[in-house]
Design a protein around this nucleic acid. Structure first.
Lengths: 208, 208
DNA sequence: CAAACTTTTTTTGTATACATTTTTATTTTT
DNA sequence: AAAAATAAAAATGTATACAAAAAAAGTTTG
């Protein structure tokens, strides 16, 4: 078990519902809960705000944002444009070892006992393994940010929406296409992988 | 004169060359220069790192990143995709007053005596005024981040590249198209506005 | 009773001091 | 002399204490 930093612990607790969505969070509250002073708490809050896991709430204080169909729509639309492009840039450099790395990560996702936050992080690691060979710092960083923010919505996809098995299989199919150098097809699959996940998520959010 | 916060003061000093690109920056150095303790300095550094104005440098310390053609290429490519989309979402809501606001901001850009950081901020305010009516928090925030990061490269555009007048005129043309409800044309102009600024910037960076 | 003002309480922001980590310089060993 | 190990210095990370600002509660006034 790796030692989670404060940022990940707060994210994990948000996903667990320890902090209700819409609730405002006080520095002292986190300070006491995690047994640290307010200084590292403040650093953590700054980071979580910049990643969309918390939002400013008036002049003082932050709150946990409500999950929102429009936010999800924007996140998945941007992902559907940026990630196929990044994957395209990756093709010319990606090695068998790097593909193997993605395969390994995807296998870890079969584990039934993962916490939501771990599923989210593994899911991103899978995509990151495919994008890293492109060596495009800035595009990669933007994509990382979008994926990280989207983890907030994973509760639905692994819960009421049950997209998990579909997603896992699409990952495997994509790896086969990449190994066979069917690049166009891999890009198309990635795009539909994202578009469809986004559409069903948005539909679900609008329905509740 | 508005009171600049620490983040803006550091950005301004980076643009002025007070901190050379590639140089590592120490917390205490900033603490002494700006006359505050290391606590607010740390907050500032966290924010500047998340905005691409500073990058981590080993396990301890941050440095001012070198300006880089590939970073510029990524920033402008993403902008050229995301901003026309966002403008398109804005059309159905934008009012004459909001267009007037953009016009006012663009006029301020005529001032010859602006510091680089101010030009950068005004330039973003112009674009932001056009995008805000769309009311797409998440897409807007990503675009804001890209624009804010791109300000680092403005020194070239107002200096050796002298794209300023072109840019100003394109802004004015775009406002006319929007007022006349020639939405497709406005979108197309915005895209080429960004693509061409990006291309000349990238070419310049590759040439030096 | 509602609106505006004042006081109190809470919360955030910052300085100082200390602990921990990282880096650099020095010494030791082969 | 080069590499490894050790010691010193510097830098970052964090706790405590206090100052400033914001929110909440209470009071006054129309």
């Amino acid at each position: 078990m790796v030692k989670l930093d404060l940022v990940d612990r707060v994210k994990s607790d948000i996903l667990k519902g320890v902090f209700a969505r819409g609730q405002t969070i006080r520095q002292q509250e986190l300070s006491e809960r995690y047994g640290v002073s307010r200084i590292p708490v403040r650093d953590t809050l700054t980071q979580l705000k910049s990643e969309g896991w918390l939002v400013k709430c008036g002049k003082a204080g932050v709150k946990v944002p409500k999950l929102d169909a429009q936010v999800a729509e924007d996140l998945y639309w941007m992902r559907s444009i940026l990630e196929p492009k990044l994957l395209g840039m990756s093709f010319e450099h990606i090695t068998h070892e790097q593909i193997g790395k993605a395969k390994d990560v995807n296998l870890l996702l079969d584990n039934e006992h993962l916490a939501l936050i771990e599923k989210g992080q593994l899911n991103w690691q899978f995509h990151a393994a495919l994008y890293a060979p492109a060596n495009r710092e800035t595009l990669f960083e933007t994509v990382r940010r979008l994926n990280t923010q989207a983890i907030q919505y994973l509760g639905f996809q692994y819960g009421p929406m049950a997209r998990r098995n579909v997603s896992q299989q699409e990952h495997k199919d994509m790896l086969v296409l990449i190994e066979n150098r069917q690049y166009r097809d891999a890009q198309a699959l990635l795009e539909s992988h994202i578009v469809e996940a986004g559409m069903s998520l948005v539909d679900y959010l609008k329905s509740i």
